[in-house]
Design a protein around this nucleic acid. Structure first.
Lengths: 219, 219
DNA sequence: TGTACATCAGTGAACGCGCGTTCACTGATGTAC
DNA sequence: TGTACATCAGTGAACGCGCGTTCACTGATGTAC
């Protein structure tokens, strides 16, 4: 693994930084374990000796922080793109949720590292922060906007958009992680469960009038 | 840490096994990290040398498996007890969900190890299993029964109990893990979110008639 | 055009550490006769 | 009641390993004069 690599030329040292983050993300995706992403392993993967990492990152933790930051940006970009593709408010909520779940399904460990870390410095900070200081605020904001637009369009006023969006997010996250962790569970086919979560939690119709139920399970 | 310990007497060697599992669970709860539960760390905690572990466990992984097995039993017992304390069908669903979340809140890392492990031998098995072969089937069965009894009592037929219970479980899991991972998020006060999830996903009223909304947020 | 020097991007060797696991052993407790 | 032996429940030393990190260094590329 990790063929030797010619040194970058003057002024191009920053390329190694990007390669380190990519290698760390790939290692995370393959090992499925944050602790398996070692500094030496990343160096091997990139084709560089271990001390070379220190020119770009203060320590091992900084590498993982960079992976997390990049993953948050990817997630936000993914759901924002899905939102922009849909004009209809209800369809947009469904599309955003589908994109969110697709990200979690296709990159399960990258997704996991976003919200699955405990005991980090960030998680240890007690009390609420303003939303815009939270990593992940971008993706959540897209969801809030989509749910809000849908509420404006057809729901009675008084529904609390932030609360609805939070409930929906929580449910999507649970589905994303459990489906990966407990694949042997008899999950319903297709997107039956997603439809139920979206329609019931955000008050968004799936098709036809604003009903409570999602598509029936075909089983 | 780990004061020296007199050897068990003849026939009482099994006591060490129980102590090992307890120590491993405690280490998990304190470190917040499965990989931090090392065989040597457990031995230190128990007050025994490392090789003594091998009299009771084949290897390090077997210790963690035992912790997981015990945690699944604890969770099932907790939710079953909550269910038995309530006669009213709707109140029972709420009580079961509250007990589930309380378990996850009070023992976050023990909870996390139940459903938060990826790439285990079990998780790698593709395809669905019969429910009763799944670890965690006990706790989930309690939830299904509670939701089912509530549906019998007041909901129109045709709602799919298994599907409703799955949606509810997924949402509870998401809430339990996210609240621990992202404490800085502006979570709604009290059990507003839980009420919403229970009432909307399982069709269970919180108080009064069978409405769609949970208790309003006081914020 | 040449040369001394500065800077960049990394290498190679070494450190101390804790880990999982194996091995031969020890001392206390029980059992057969 | 005594004694030889078996079993149990562990100990102590050692192994090879990969880890994060530090240190002095090398060779290529640029710049000042």
């Amino acid at each position: 693994m990790g063929t030797a690599r010619a040194p970058n030329r003057w002024g191009e040292g920053a390329r190694l930084r990007a390669d380190i983050v990519s290698a760390a993300a790939a290692l995370l995706e393959e090992s499925g374990n944050e602790d398996a992403v070692t500094l030496r392993g990343v160096a091997r993967r990139v084709g560089v000796t271990a001390p070379a990492i220190y020119r770009h990152f203060a320590d091992r933790a900084a590498i993982l922080d960079a992976v997390v930051g990049e993953a948050f940006e990817e997630l936000a970009a993914t759901v924002a793109a899905a939102a922009h593709r849909e004009d209809d408010a209800s369809a947009r909520v469904h599309a955003v949720c589908a994109a969110y779940l697709a990200f979690a399904t296709e990159r399960p460990y990258r997704y996991r590292v976003l919200f699955g870390r405990h005991r980090t410095a960030e998680a240890a900070m007690p009390g609420a922060k303003p939303m815009d200081e939270l990593r992940g605020a971008g993706a959540f904001g897209v969801l809030v906007d989509a749910v809000g637009a849908c509420a404006d369009a057809r729901n009675p006023p008084g529904r609390e958009v932030q609360l609805d969006a939070t409930a929906l997010w929580v449910a999507l996250h649970g589905y994303a992680t459990l489906r990966a962790s407990v694949p042997a569970f008899p999950w319903p086919d297709g997107d039956a469960l997603v439809s139920i979560l979206v329609t019931r939690l955000a008050g968004v119709p799936s098709t036809g009038p604003c009903g409570r139920d999602g598509t029936a399970r075909s089983g």
